[in-house]
Simulated assay, not measured.
Amino acid sequence: MNLVKAFFHFIFKIFKTKSVEIKHVQRLSAFDTVLIKPSIEASNDLLKYGTILIVKDGSIQKWARFICPCGCGQKQVISLQISHSPHWSLNTIGETVTLHPSVHVNGADGCGAHFFIRKNQIEWV
Rank of each mutant, 00 (worst) to 15 (best):
H100Y: 14
D109S: 01
E41M: 04
L80Q: 05
S79I: 07
V34N: 00
P101Q: 09
S29G: 13
V105S: 04
G112D: 10
V105T: 04
F66Y: 12
S85L: 12
P86C: 13
D109T: 01
F31Q: 01
H24I: 06
T33S: 08
D109G: 00
V97R: 02
G71K: 11
V25L: 13
K37P: 04
L35M: 06
S39Y: 08
L46Q: 10
S39C: 11
V55S: 06
A113W: 02
A113L: 02
S85G: 09
G107A: 00
G58L: 03
F66T: 05
Y49T: 05
H114G: 01
S79D: 14
I54T: 03
L28W: 01
F66S: 06
R65I: 15
N44L: 14
V105N: 07
I40W: 01
K48D: 10
G110E: 05
N106W: 05
T96G: 03
H87I: 05
V97E: 09
S79A: 09
I60A: 09
L99R: 03
S89R: 13
V97G: 07
F31H: 00
E95C: 12
G110V: 00
P38D: 15
I82T: 13
D57V: 06
P86L: 10
E95R: 12
V25I: 13
S29Y: 06
S59P: 07
D32W: 02
Y49V: 07
V55L: 00
G71S: 11
S43Y: 11
L90P: 07
I82Q: 14
K56W: 14
Q26G: 05
A64Y: 00
V34Q: 02
F12V: 09
T98V: 04
G112M: 09
Q76D: 01
I22M: 09
D45L: 04
H84F: 09
H114F: 01
I52Q: 03
G50W: 01
K18N: 04
K16Y: 10
Y49G: 02
A64W: 04
L53H: 06
P101F: 03
H84Q: 15
S83E: 09
C111V: 03
Q61D: 13
H87D: 08
A113T: 00
V34C: 02
I54L: 12
A113G: 11
I14C: 07
V20D: 10
Q26V: 03
D45T: 14
L35H: 04
P86M: 11
L53F: 07
F31S: 00
H24F: 12
K75G: 14
S85Y: 13
S39I: 11
K16A: 14
T51E: 12
K48M: 11
